[in-house]
Write a protein that binds this DNA or RNA. Structure first.
Lengths: 207, 207
DNA sequence: ACCATTTTTAATCAATTGATTAAACTTTTT
DNA sequence: AAAAAGTTTAATCAATTGATTAAAAATGGT
């Protein structure tokens, strides 16, 4: 067992995660990963049997990371209004730290939906969550606009994640640097939060 | 000059467009394109000097297609409210007909922003349009919420295009087929239009 | 019909790809 | 310390990649 700080297996995983996130499955060579991990290229096949297997592992890992945080918030025993606010904040923080997580997942899923079918199973848990029940109740009480949880979730996710999917485009089109983009995104999220909450919790129909 | 219906050059362009859109630059081989076009694989290099050059041409073509429609609407001499409504409708129609246009452009831009810098120059025209002036005026008059045109544009684009970027995910997570997705998307756009207009043209501040 | 130009083809190139091998090196077990 | 098991290495494999070649076929002008 290699105990010098990190195991070889861990080094490969970390390197693979970084390279796959940046270059995608097709754009990544096994030698890229080996080089990034600082290991012999045959070691990748020793620990993970193939590039495909390693990718499946990393992809699954990143999907879990993405959805688990969402699920945690969505299942908290707090009010709907607070939950939506927290959901937006949490997701924004996650994307600020992992700006190309969404474009990676969406692109790989687009390239090969069948291959990744099993991995995305966890996404099905969101429509089944407490969130869904809370919304049904709120609608029944006339507390919010009549909208299914899928639509609400899509609004939240779209407004946050598209910011990062289109990050290179936004930076080019508006001539922003990293700091400029961060400022733009931070401001934008405030508007989005206000817009979504205004729409859902309409003043005239509030309890 | 080949006059049997379509020229060889056109056949290559059409095939390349379809294959690149589906598989991306890295996932596409020149033999894929040749096969899809029904031509000898050396012909691709005869008409376009390399895979890279052909890709640049197609990418530029698709970017123009994407932005030109937006720019046309944005520069029409109509009211802001009507313009936003038209912008959403037009963009939705375009995405329904080209569902993977956005994920393709965003992913290639993410993979290689420098290479495609020149191509995306046209995106800069949007912040310079009549739309921008109209918004400044409306804000000055207190007709709409105080928001820069960049934020408004981002809201519109994000809510529509992310629907299609995440299409495979949505279909998997909610167990939808093509028809189911179309129904979901069509409904969603109505909500989005209402939400954005409500937010911009707030009742209490309307002229 | 002849020639020059353009277009298309099959064959092939060197480079890169994911993967395997057998030998060398470490670590653990006895 | 010797044997066994686990880990790492360099060398190499066949397949695929983007691209080029030289010859063949088609086209157009005279």
């Amino acid at each position: 067992m290699n105990c010098l700080l990190v195991s070889t297996e861990e080094k490969i995983k970390e390197a693979a995660k970084a390279v796959f996130l940046e270059k995608g499955f097709d754009g990544t060579t096994t030698r890229d990963i080996a080089k990034a991990a600082g290991i012999n290229s045959a070691l990748m096949n020793y620990y993970f049997r193939s590039k495909e297997k390693l990718f499946q592992f990393i992809f699954n890992d990143l999907c879990s990371f993405m959805f688990q945080g969402m699920l945690d918030v969505v299942n908290q025993p707090i009010s709907l209004r607070e939950k939506i606010s927290k959901l937006i904040d949490h997701q924004f923080q996650m994307m600020m730290q992992n700006p190309n997580l969404t474009i990676f997942i969406m692109n790989e899923l687009h390239r090969n939906p069948e291959r990744l079918y099993a991995t995305v199973g966890m996404a099905k848990k969101i429509p089944e969550s407490i969130f869904h029940q809370q919304i049904d109740e709120a609608i029944a009480q006339g507390a919010i606009t009549h909208l299914s949880s899928q639509h609400i979730m899509t609004m939240i996710v779209a407004n946050i994640q598209f910011l990062f999917v289109s990050k290179p485009m936004t930076m080019l089109a508006n001539g922003l640097d990293e700091a400029g983009f961060k400022a733009f995104a931070t401001q934008h999220i405030e508007y989005v939060k206000e817009m979504i909450c205004d729409y859902l919790f309409k003043p005239e129909t509030a309890t």
